[in-house]
Design a protein around this nucleic acid. Structure first.
Length: 494
RNA sequence: GGCGCGGUACCCAAGUGGUAAGGGAGAGGUCUGCAAAACCUUUAUGCGUCGGUUCGAUUCCGACCCGCGCCUCCA
């Protein structure tokens, strides 16, 4: 079975093979660091992260490059508003983005920054001009001449023939040859960041950075180019135009686009009040693992309806998996092994692989692992799991978690980070009682909890249930869940 | 207006030309001093509506209704 992916360029699912034997070169359009990342951003970045993990699980070495757009109109505007330099401004939000990405389980890609590639970008523009694909306007801006690139519109399936020389729509852009031509280089404006370069003073157009940095890092033709669906047009279309007109070669072989999500059934927007950053959700007391699980649970090309009910459900699902893992690793088993369980583990792995190979069908991969969890739990209840069965089951679980990355319970420390951030950044009023409780339970020392549990057990053995129930209630109130099993008392933080 | 995607149980959500995965929630039960975990049973003769093709359609085709996206810098 081989990995198949939907390619926006061909508008169909194709078998994926990298150009080089064992190495996948992929470029992802990263964030413009002008604000904290919202859950829509992270839906896309998690989809890309899952793609990367599936590629690796498929045996490829993945060279994953992502850009940070650290100069653009919004950044310039907001930095001016806050009275800081563009660098100070972007540094803050880049740091926040990387913290968020780590919090939500995204493996760090190699980062490239627009402002660190200004000379290369100017050089690129100069070459475009030399070949006649771009021209300089009177004010010192440079535009790409779409009329010179007949394939324009191939990715987004738009037909621009006959409309290239339409009416001049914008008085500010009077010196473009065609209304459709897009800026590759912007002339300096008073108060805006600009750089002195071989083609004059100014700053890069947005699309330019991705063409230059991706080819710089990965070569003129690379395997995968990813981003949110909104980037198909104009961003990626323009990248293709610039890059391919210059090199005469295919720019990216596969185009991967994640669909936008809905929040509570509606498009996320600040005016509707359903706009949430990742930090907003953690402040409300939601675990990063729940958020990741929910965002990963709907295949990336489907619309995902992000709801708070769904978040709760995701949290319970993750807990179920974690409980299962604990049950396997801490249980006592008799020696031996059985073919049936081995077969179940193998079948589960096969089903997960087949699901992920089919254009990253994460929902089906989850269904496969849960099928195994239910059947093995049942077998555990019936005491038919043997010691020799456990490694195969753990292997299936591990393969699942190589993709979904939710088993490890480090939610407490991550939530603590957000808690601390809220205190230092003046968002204390936004800290929910739930987050407060989660942080507090995380601050309890294990030894103190175990001391209380020991007291509870003494009381229980003496059948003094009044005392034991009081102790249990105290621990529950502190966010500690206690499970009395036959062998021992298990506890965990809620 | 142009191009594209989707409407599946109380909620989230896969999927297939041959009779509906998985998770959550609810109800009942097993286990249990209580609780938790776990298991079992149960919850869509039905997959937006109306037609058509077919032996057979939720799955294909058409129309309609509704939701969503892109159409110059929003992931």
């Amino acid at each position: 079975m081989a990995l198949s992916l939907y390619n926006t360029m061909s508008a169909s699912v194709e078998e994926f093979r990298p150009l080089r034997d064992n190495e996948v070169r992929m470029y992802a359009c990263g964030p413009t660091v002008y604000d904290y990342g919202h859950i829509g951003n992270f839906r896309t970045f998690i989809a890309i992260d899952i793609l990367r993990r599936v590629l690796r699980q498929s045996g490829y070495k993945v060279n994953h490059v992502m850009n940070i757009t650290d100069v653009d109109d919004k950044i310039i505007r907001n930095a001016a508003r806050d009275g800081v330099t563009v660098q100070q401004y972007t540094a803050k939000y880049e740091k926040a983005f990387l913290e968020d990405a780590t919090m939500i389980g995204i493996e760090p890609p190699t980062l490239v920054r627009a402002t660190e590639h200004i000379p290369e970008m100017a050089e690129f523009v100069a070459k475009l001009v030399e070949k006649g694909f771009a021209y300089r306007a009177e004010d010192g801006s440079y535009y790409f001449r779409i009329a010179k690139f007949p394939q324009y519109g191939r990715l987004s399936k738009k037909d621009f023939r006959g409309m290239l020389d339409g009416a001049r729509v914008d008085v500010d852009e009077y010196d473009k040859d065609s209304a459709r031509d897009f800026a590759v280089w912007k002339a300096p404006k008073p108060g805006e960041s600009s750089w002195d370069t071989s083609i004059g003073r100014g700053r890069p157009g947005w699309h330019l950075e991705c063409s230059v940095m991706s080819m710089n890092a990965l070569g003129e033709t690379f395997d995968l180019h990813a981003g949110g669906e909104d980037l198909i047009f104009p961003h990626h279309e323009n990248e293709i135009a610039q890059s391919e007109s210059l090199t005469g070669k295919t720019f990216a072989r596969f185009w991967f686009h994640a669909r936008f999500l809905l929040v509570e059934g509606e498009k996320m927007s600040k005016s509707i009040g359903n706009f949430f950053t990742l930090r907003d959700l953690v402040l409300k007391g939601h675990k990063p693992s729940s958020i990741r699980y929910l965002l990963a649970s709907v295949p990336y090309r489907n619309q995902l309806n992000f709801t708070f009910d769904g978040l709760k459900q995701a949290s319970v699902s993750v807990e179920r998996l974690r409980n299962f893992y604990v049950r396997l690793t801490e249980g006592h088993f008799t020696d031996g092994s059985g073919d049936e369980i081995q077969a179940l583990a193998d079948e589960t792995i096969d089903r997960m692989r087949a699901a992920l190979d089919d254009d990253l069908n994460t929902a089906q991969a989850q269904a496969a692992i849960f099928e195994m969890v239910r059947r093995v739990n049942s077998a555990l209840d019936a005491k038919v799991i043997k010691k020799g069965d456990v490694p195969a089951l753990l292997e299936a679980l591990a393969q699942f978690d190589e993709i979904f990355a939710v088993l490890k319970d480090d939610d407490g420390s991550k939530m603590k980070q957000v808690f601390d951030w809220a205190l230092t950044e003046g968002h204390e009023k936004d800290i929910s009682p739930e987050l407060r409780e989660a942080v507090q339970s995380g601050q309890l020392f294990d030894a103190d909890i175990e001391e209380k549990i020991a007291q509870m057990e003494t009381a229980r053995r003496a059948r003094d249930f009044k005392v034991s129930d009081t102790l249990r209630a105290e621990l529950t109130a502190a966010g500690i869940v206690i499970e009395n099993t036959k062998d021992r008392v298990r506890w965990r933080r809620k």
